[in-house]
Amino acid sequence: MVNWITSVKSFRWWLVAIVVMMVLPFIVPPSFLRICIMANFMAIFAMSWDMMSGYTGYVSFGHPFLIGLAGYVSAMLSHQGGFQPPHIVLPLYVTMPLGIAAAVGGGMLFFLPSMRVRGPYFSLISLAFLMILSRIMIAAGAMTGGDRGLTSLPYLVTGAVNNYWLSTGIMFAVAIGLWLVARSDVGHVLKAIRMDEDVVESSGLSTYRFKRFAFILSAITAGIGGVFYTHYMGSISPAGAFDYIFLLNIIVSTVVGGMGTILGPIFGGYFITFFTESTRTLLEGAWRFMAYSLVALAIVYFRPGGFYGIVHDIAAWFRAKRRGGLQYDQVT
């Protein structure tokens, strides 16, 4: 009974968020919903990055690699022609799982060796492979459409409202799944790895086993986001999938929201998407990216804990004031 109450209590913020998201389509115009759709995808990508980097401290610069690989594989297999035989066109329910599998397989092949080694190796390698993959995708023009990428891909659903429901559903499914992992002992160990990996190893835990699990979860999430995003947009190109700004958006969303949390990246994804959308008309081209990079830099520098950190500090302060002293359920 007590257990049941505590689990409802820990779910309460999810319930609030879900209710707000359910009401939204009835009160805002489709143009607003389109921004929400982008924000949902950014939230998925940010959660994926956070599962790997925010929790364990192994900073990945390769998430566009995972996302792009998933998107490209699904796009190439479902594309209605344009490239040479064998002329395979597969339905989406086949190509999308294959895309996700490609993200996991490709990620494990290229990134996992570097995770056996401590230190910044993982980060360097992930960035290096991101650049190489984008070169390969451009070079393999016959398959991938080269610089221009692949267009007129099949959609899953059409219309702003339907896509809103779809992306919101996926986003919450991913979020709750990751949250259940994060609040279990797995999340606990991953955070400990970020703080002192040697000590975790001395506690009789294979840190590699936990890092690998976090990576696979992250890659699955990135793959899910990648395939759904590709078939929402109906196109994929190197400029969209492998651009640094895309990578920057993912990382900044997480950092702004709060690393090592699940709600943080969701909030950050929404914040960053609405922020960039609202500056679209104010500044142009390089100026906008410049301003955006500088703002991102300022946030990382002055508030590395993100909004989650701020809210958490304030809430803890109030509770401590009310009850006088810390309680067990507050510190975990």
Partner: peptide, 11 residues
């Protein structure tokens, strides 16, 4: 905090 250094120098 190498994570912050990584992210900020990349930006």
């Amino acid at each position: 905090n190498p994570t912050i250094v990584f992210v900020s120098t990349f930006i």
